[in-house]
Design a protein around this nucleic acid. Structure first.
Lengths: 223, 223
DNA sequence: GTCTATAACCCGATAGAC
DNA sequence: GTCTATCGGGTTATAGAC
């Protein structure tokens, strides 16, 4: 089975090149040159360029999702079958943020690949992300157990906003650093996780009360 | 100046095709066929495919940024030189959300183009987005006037999270609809704006107090 | 100045020999 | 399984007609 070597070499070279230079700038010819294999081997082992990218992304996604579920399970067992809402949200955003942020020098190829995937969002990756819904439902279910009084709509919005803050922080960490002139420390991952979790929890516990009634034709605000 | 017609036809055709089918699936040949002009006209009028995309995006971005600043100015004048924090954040996220969400049938070509740009994030568009920092600084300055007691870091994070929630809602509206089985109404733009603003305000007014101290090696949570 | 026509090159995918 | 050779198509760039 010399093929396993070829296959693995392609995967490793592709992940590194995509992480370093992005999906748009890396051709299959670049990849096979770096892996020192033949051009046709890519099509033989993966079927197409898109399926190669999909396999790279699926592998890393499965790892992240397993981490999330492990943390969720640990939080629920620690709480006697019902995890606290902050622990649930921490299990949701923690693995992604820990995996993608942190000091530059410590970022693995896998981490840089996932950051790139988050920024460029090429078609095969989008297709896989759209199949994540069943995975997210497990977190909605846990949130429902933690906050049985909240309406489901509020739970969905809170989960959506938590993921939004986490992903955008991964995507735009450079812009936030520039905007804040370094005052926002993107290397302090634990602090960022707690920020995202705290805001998401407030969206669930502090909201609903002070939100304005839906004013359909509001153009400006008038105090 | 028959060229103005050619130029405009290319811009209109390109925006429509990109909005409908995405940047990856539309070739220059598709565009010139739809605009009924010659292939080389694109290179003559815009220099390259990337510059054509950049011009489309810059035009729409300028319009959005002007709306934002108009709303900010109106809010500050209405408040005697100092706008309330919610009015500032509403001016920041309102134009984008109003422009990109709402009933499908009402979405203009320009709106669908901006949604596409938000999802696919192709290199020329990323370059332009990175130059938005000076624009955002005006909102940071307004926030500082509204909440002079808050530390600057908190203002940056709140602005970042507000934009994160707004952009991710535009980007992933379909996933949220599926996840919530239609229970989250993505057509009720006014409600979405108020949700984003409310959560962002809470990030500024409710935070700082109950956030945990930075626990560098926290793996799980232990109550 | 404006546009047409075409050249020269690179991409991903694949048929078929080995 | 691996490799050569090649196809169809997209992109830039440009010579030269209008």
């Amino acid at each position: 089975m010399a093929s396993d070597h070829t296959r693995g070499a392609i995967l490793a070279a592709a992940e590194r090149l995509y992480a370093d230079r992005g999906f748009g700038d890396v051709t299959l010819r670049d990849i096979v040159a770096a892996a020192d294999v033949n051009l046709a081997a890519v099509n033989y082992h993966f079927g197409s360029k898109d399926e190669l990218i999909a396999e790279l992304f699926v592998t890393r996604s499965i790892a992240t999702n397993r981490e999330r579920l492990n943390e969720l399970k640990a939080a629920e067992e620690g709480g006697g079958g019902r995890a606290s809402i902050d622990a649930i949200l921490r299990a949701l955003v923690g693995p992604t943020l820990r995996g993608c942020l942190g000091p530059e020098r410590e970022r693995s190829t896998a981490a840089r690949f996932m950051i790139r995937a988050s920024i460029e969002s090429v078609p095969p990756i989008r297709r896989i992300r759209n199949r994540e819904i069943d995975h997210l439902r497990k977190f909605v279910a846990a949130m429902r157990r933690a906050l049985p009084d909240r309406s489901e709509v509020e739970l969905y919005w809170a989960l959506h906003f938590a993921l939004a803050m986490a992903h955008q922080t991964v995507r735009d960490s450079e812009r936030l650093t520039k905007l804040s002139e370094g005052k926002c420390d993107l290397d302090d991952v634990a602090d960022i996780i707690e920020r995202v979790v705290a805001v998401s929890v407030m969206a669930l516990t502090g909201g609903e009360v002070e939100r304005k009634p839906p004013a359909k034709l509001m153009a400006r605000d008038a105090p």
